[in-house]
Nucleic acid binder design. Structure first.
Length: 484
DNA sequence: TTTTGAGTTGTTCGA
DNA sequence: GTCGAACAACTCAAA
C-alpha cells in the first residue's frame, strides 16, 4: 500500500503509445503512471485468443513494454480474472483513476461494466476513451434512429460526419510509479509455441509492435496506395495494406490511418480513387463493429432468421481437407496454406475459401469462423463474424445465396499468371497456366511433365464444383420454402 | 404511410 | 471471344 496517488492505465486492444486516449489522459493528470495488461482467457470463453493471435500478442506486449519503459512507465503483466485483478491492483497502488480504451466484444462490454462499478465502489474513478474506432458504434444511425444494416448508406453517413478527431501524440512527460509491483514474466504465459514450433512462417512474415505498424503504414502509403484500387484483388501482387493485425491489437489506430491517408492524398491527388477505396475498407471494419455492437449474438447466431433452418451437412472430412489445404482446388488450397503458414490470407482468397466451405461443402459458417479465429493473426471478433455471415449469405448486406464463387474462374481471373498458386502449392508449380487452376483437365502427359500425380502428390477435387453448386442452390430453395 | 431506388467483391447461359 | 440478361425476391433507407 502506498500513500502516493497514481494513475493506472489498463491496456487491452490498444497496444500503442501514440493516439492512445487512455494513456494521454493518464499522463495529463501529472500523477505517476503505471500500466497493466491482463491475460484473461476464462472471461473470453470461446473467444480467448487463438494460437496465431497469441503469437502476435507476445511480440506486441514485448514491444509495448519496451516503449513504456523508455518513458519510465512500468507495464505490469498479470494472468487471471481482470475483474479481480484490476480493482485490486488499483487499490494497492492508490490509483485515483483507472484509464482504459473501450472494447466492443459483448463479453468485454459486460465485464468492463462490472469492473467500472467495482472500482467506483472503492472510490476509484474510471475514465474510458476511444482508441479503436473512427466513431463509436452507436453514433451512426439511420434517419429513423435504427442501426444500419447495409454498408453503402452506412459509408455515406460516415463520410457526411465530421472527420474523426486528429490522432493524439504519444505522451512524453510521464512519471513512473516508484514502487515494486509483482509482474508475470511474459515468457511464462507460453504465448509462443515451443514444441512443435509452428511459428517460423509468422516470424518470417510479421513484425508486431507499434513502431513496425507505423513503418508499415508509411511504406504502404508511399508505395502501395497508388495502385491499391486496381491491384487489391490480385493475391499474387503484394498490394494490400496488411495492416489488419496491427489494427486488431491497436498498435495503430484507425484515426491515425484515416488522417495519414488524407494527408497523403493532399500531396498525391492522383491517388484519390485508391485512397478512398482504402478508406472504405476501413469503414467496413467500422461497419462490422457497428453490427456486433447492435447484434451481440453475431459471432454465434445466424443473423437472418430464415437461414436458421439451413440444411448444413455434417462434413468432417470435407472440413479437415479444407483446413489442410487439400481440397484439390488450387486457389482454395493456396489460400488455406497461406493462412496456416503466415497467419494471414489475402482478402480475395478469404472470400473464395469461405464460399467453398459454406456453399460447396455445406459446412456451417461457424466452423470456418472458428478455424480463422485460431489461425489468423488478425482474428477480430467483429470482422470475422460479420465476414463469415456475409459470405454464407446470412449476414447483414450479405452476398445473395445464388452467388456461388467458382474456384476455377476466380483463380483464372485473379491469379492469371498463377504466381499465388505456385507460391503456396509448389507441387503444381510446373503446370502451364492453362491447367493450373484445374489440373484434372490436363492430359496425362502434361501432368507427368509437371511432376503432378493427382491423388498422389496433389489431391483430386473433393467435390465437383458444378454439382456442389447445384446442391447449394437446392439447399437454398429449401429454406425459401420453409420461410414461405 | 407509401413509394422508390438500390444493394462489395458472381456465374451461367444463350445470342 | 464477348456481351447482356437472368438469377429471387426481399429488405433497407430515405424521400
Amino acid at each position: 500500500m502506498t500513500a502516493q496517488k497514481s494513475a493506472l492505465v489498463w491496456f487491452r486492444q490498444d497496444l500503442r503509445l501514440a493516439d492512445n486516449p487512455a494513456l494521454a489522459r493518464a499522463a495529463e493528470t501529472g500523477l505517476p503512471v503505471i500500466a497493466i495488461f491482463v491475460l484473461d482467457d476464462d472471461a473470453a470463453g470461446a473467444w480467448a485468443h487463438g494460437g496465431a493471435s497469441r503469437w502476435w500478442l507476445e511480440g506486441s506486449l514485448s514491444a509495448l513494454r519496451g516503449a513504456l519503459t523508455e518513458q519510465g512507465v512500468v507495464l505490469i503483466l498479470r494472468q487471471g480474472s481482470a475483474e479481480a485483478i484490476v480493482p485490486e491492483l488499483a487499490s494497492e497502488i492508490g490509483a485515483a483513476t483507472v484509464f482504459w480504451n473501450r472494447c466492443y466484444e459483448p463479453w468485454r462490454i459486460a465485464r468492463d461494466t462490472r469492473i467500472k462499478t467495482a472500482l467506483r465502489e472503492r472510490g476509484i474513478a474510471v475514465d474510458s476513451g476511444n482508441s479503436a474506432l473512427l466513431h463509436e458504434p452507436w453514433v451512426l444511425k439511420t434517419k429513423s434512429g435504427d442501426p444500419f444494416k447495409v454498408f453503402t448508406p452506412f459509408w455515406k453517413a460516415l463520410q457526411a460526419l465530421e472527420s474523426p478527431p486528429r490522432p493524439l501524440p504519444a505522451p512524453t512527460q510521464m512519471q513512473g510509479l516508484d514502487a515494486s509491483i509483482p509482474s508475470d514474466d511474459l515468457k511464462s504465459w507460453g504465448l509462443r509455441p515451443a514444441r512443435p514450433d509452428w511459428a517460423k512462417g509468422l516470424r518470417d512474415t510479421w513484425q508486431p509492435g507499434e513502431a513496425a505498424a507505423r513503418e508499415h503504414l508509411s511504406c504502404f502509403l508511399d508505395e502501395g496506395l497508388r495502385s491499391y484500387a486496381s491491384h487489391r484483388d490480385f493475391p499474387g501482387i503484394p498490394s494490400t495494406s496488411r495492416l489488419s493485425p496491427h489494427l486488431h491489437f491497436g498498435e495503430i489506430g484507425p484515426r491515425q490511418i484515416w488522417h495519414a491517408t488524407l494527408h497523403h492524398l493532399e500531396a498525391n491527388p492522383d491517388a484519390q480513387k485508391s485512397g478512398w477505396k482504402f478508406l472504405s475498407e476501413l469503414a467496413w471494419r467500422e461497419f462490422s463493429h457497428h453490427l456486433l455492437f447492435h447484434w451481440p449474438s453475431l459471432p454465434e447466431t445466424t443473423w437472418r432468421e430464415n437461414f436458421r433452418a439451413f440444411p448444413w451437412h455434417d462434413n468432417e472430412d470435407g472440413f479437415l481437407a479444407w483446413t489442410r489445404g487439400a481440397t484439390g482446388y488450387p486457389i482454395v488450397d493456396a489460400g488455406m496454406r497461406e493462412l496456416y503458414a503466415t497467419g494471414w490470407m489475402h482478402n480475395r482468397v478469404r472470400m473464395i475459401v469461405g464460399s467453398f466451405l459454406v456453399k460447396d461443402l455445406l459446412v456451417p459458417w461457424q466452423q470456418g469462423e472458428a478455424w480463422f479465429w485460431d489461425t489468423l493473426v488478425d482474428a477480430d471478433l467483429a470482422n470475422n463474424a460479420a465476414s463469415w455471415q456475409w459470405v454464407a449469405g446470412c449476414g447483414a448486406d450479405a452476398a445473395p445465396y445464388f452467388r456461388v464463387f467458382n474456384p476455377i474462374t476466380q483463380g483464372e481471373k485473379f491469379d492469371p499468371e498463377g504466381d499465388y498458386v505456385r507460391t503456396w502449392v509448389p507441387e503444381l508449380a510446373k503446370l502451364p497456366n492453362e491447367f493450373l487452376h484445374h489440373p484434372w483437365d490436363a492430359s496425362e502427359g502434361t501432368l507427368r511433365a509437371a511432376g503432378v500425380e493427382l491423388g498422389v502428390n496433389y489431391p483430386k477435387p473433393i467435390v465437383d464444383h458444378g454439382a456442389a453448386r447445384k446442391r447449394a442452390l437446392a439447399a437454398f430453395e429449401e429454406i425459401k420454402k420453409g420461410a414461405a
